[in-house]
Simulated scan of single mutants.
Amino acid sequence: MIRLLNSLLVLIACLTTAFGQTKITASEAAKIFEKNKKAQLLDVRTQKEYTDKHIANSINLDWNQKAEFEEGTLSKLNKKSPVYVYCLSGGRSAQAAKNLADRGFTVYEIEGGILKWEATNLPLEKNLSQAPKGITLKQFKALTKDEQMVLVDFHASWCGPCKEMEPSIKQIAEKYAGRVKVLKIDVDENDTLTKQLGITSIPVLYLYKGGKRI
């Protein structure tokens, strides 16, 4: 099982670094936005994700809606100024950054996206009318406190690397049935828990035994 997990980690590394775009940290980006309120900041998540929470003064163009994305970037962005791009954790923003760079934009990708931004305790504009989603930290601890090992898969429905890993996760669940329990956590539905556990990128795999991460 350890060999299989190691293989999955190699896959993650390959998939998340394939695009090689220029990156800046959340802290570096925040300093730029503080000095320049008119900086071109592009959120490439879905409209629902954007409504839930986003970085102030950003515009939203969903990367998954390719035609609308390309049309929107042409009408709303200025090629003479740099564009700062982010998503939830980096997968979609890497693809969007490459697309923009290929079309002549100067692009900076905010490393780690919203997850890293929150982990750095930087401010976000949020939909305050919405109740916290997902399971609580107490419930998570109860689920991972088991005599058999618990493999926790932090993922999202839109995450390409997560989909690539899914068959291997299923294989682990079947091969080690009775010894390993697989717990899948959708980060979009568990944003509070994700922040509490310090998850700043996906996919992430944690292995627990008796409630302790091993």
Rank of each mutant, 00 (worst) to 15 (best):
E174P: 01
G112C: 11
G134L: 07
D153R: 10
D153N: 15
H155Y: 15
G160E: 07
R179C: 00
N190Q: 10
P123H: 10
V152P: 12
F154M: 07
N121G: 07
K184D: 05
L197V: 09
H155V: 00
I110D: 05
N121S: 15
L197E: 05
K141A: 01
Y176E: 07
K175W: 00
P167C: 04
T106C: 06
A119C: 02
I110H: 12
E147N: 15
M165R: 12
S201K: 13
C162T: 08
P132W: 09
K163H: 11
G134S: 08
Q196L: 09
P123F: 02
I114H: 12
F154E: 05
E164W: 07
K184C: 00
G160W: 02
L205R: 11
I110F: 11
E125F: 02
L137W: 03
F105K: 11
G198S: 06
C159M: 07
T192K: 14
L205N: 12
D153M: 07
E111W: 02
E118W: 00
C159E: 09
K184Q: 09
D191E: 12
P132H: 10
K141M: 00
V187G: 01
T136M: 05
G178P: 10
L128S: 09
K163D: 08
P167I: 03
L128M: 08
I199R: 09
I135M: 07
K163I: 07
A142K: 15
T120G: 00
M149V: 01
G178E: 04
K141I: 03
D188F: 04
C162A: 04
I172V: 12
T192D: 09
F105A: 02
P123W: 08
V107G: 04
S129H: 13
N121P: 08
T136E: 04
C159F: 02
T194F: 01
G112P: 05
D146L: 11
T194V: 11
Q148I: 11
K181T: 09
P123Y: 02
V152I: 04
S168V: 04
R179E: 06
V187L: 03
G198V: 08
K141W: 00
I199F: 01
H155E: 09
C162H: 15
M165W: 09
A142T: 14
K195I: 06
K170P: 06
M149Q: 12
G112N: 08
L122I: 03
L193Y: 12
E109F: 02
D146C: 11
A156I: 04
P132D: 06
E111N: 13
T192F: 00
A173K: 15
V204P: 13
T136A: 03
Q148Y: 10
N190P: 08
Y108L: 10
T192A: 07
C159W: 10
Q139W: 01
A177P: 04
C159D: 06
K195G: 05
A131G: 00
L122R: 11
G178C: 08
W117S: 08
L124E: 01
K145A: 05
Y108C: 05
E166W: 06
C159N: 14
Q171L: 10
L124D: 04
M149W: 04
V182Q: 10
D146I: 03
A156S: 13
D186I: 05
I110M: 13
I169G: 13
G160N: 06
L151D: 11
V204E: 14
N190I: 02
F154T: 05
Q148F: 00
